[in-house]
Amino acid sequence: MSDPLISTLAGIVTNATPLVIAAMGETITERAGIVNLSLDGSIVLSAMSGFVVAYSAQQILITSAGMTAPEAAGLSVIIGAIGAMVVGALVALLIAFSSISLRQDQVAVGFVLTLLGTDLAVFLGTNYARIPGPQILPTDLPLLANIPVIGEIFFQQSGFAYVSYLLVFGTWWLFFRTRQGLSLRAVGERPEAAFARGIPVNRLRYLYTALGGAVVGLAGAAYSLNVRAGWTVPPAMGGDGWIALAIVIFGGWHPFRVLIGAYLFAGLRSLASVIQRTPGIEINITLLNAAPWVLMIITLLLVSSGALERLLQVLPRPLQKPLRGILRSDPPAALGTRFERK
């Protein structure tokens, strides 16, 4: 490892990766008009499932295919990640089913699944806690990794990080450069109009809720198969689901801004340990741990209230418009509401 600053920044990218993935999954779902509030529970449940599946796959590969543990690790991680995605999609489908087909409150079902997911994961996963299992290791991306600074920060990461970059770009491409994306956004903004144009609103909502849920499941796998190095009880990723949900709002449902939001939160978290090691700064450690939550309130305050608008008014006029375009954003108009065929 080279310069401490660069490796700290690279560490922030590593730690932010599951947040980026989870927030991107939720962005897809919410853009289609459904709130998957269960993120915190979904992530924990899929992290557990991903680890257990990967662990079992590795055992099977070792005993029946005669591979060594390191040889089996790569394939096992991929199988585990798929398992986690299936679990994430199933949880999301439950929300889609209860809100679209059974007309229940999305928030209520999502909240129940938040608690249930965590408890279920702890109950089912007790025997797999703290055992060494397959992990994915960082691999340098050829050429890109050699770029000074940028390469060291972004391209000497694990596969999950590379997937997260592709995911952000892919989501942006889907939203704003494809016909499917146009339909997706129409379903979340003005479902009646979309329906009138022949778009199958509820079918698309099912689809994108499941897709978003699968991506959230992948975030769970990124925790247990990479960033948090295995499965523990209590789950080491608890609470991050809520942060991911807040990042979606902070990011204004736009993939690139969501990405920046995730890096910002991860950076703030690492600040707590940096300050602790800095001589001369006397701040209570416990209070430092509260920083991400305070930031969560402040950022929501900025994007939700008129504060940002008032701030913009102070700036010179030519700057206002482009900045407003970047900073302001409203939720998908039909977010959380039901669509019923009249």
């Binding site: 209860s98 087909s101 059974l102 007309r103 229940q104 409150d105 209520a108 079902v109 129940v112 699944l113 608690l115 249930l116 965590t118 408890d119 279920l120 702890v122 109950f123 007790t126 009880v233």
Partner: peptide, 25 residues
């Protein structure tokens, strides 16, 4: 594990919500 009790409670509320939806439907 005590998490079991959380599971029982969670499933109870979830099935109650789903059942309510299904019967209304």
């Amino acid at each position: 594990d005590v998490a079991l009790v959380g599971v029982v409670q969670g499933i109870l509320v979830l099935t109650a919500l789903l059942f309510k939806g299904a019967s209304e439907r």
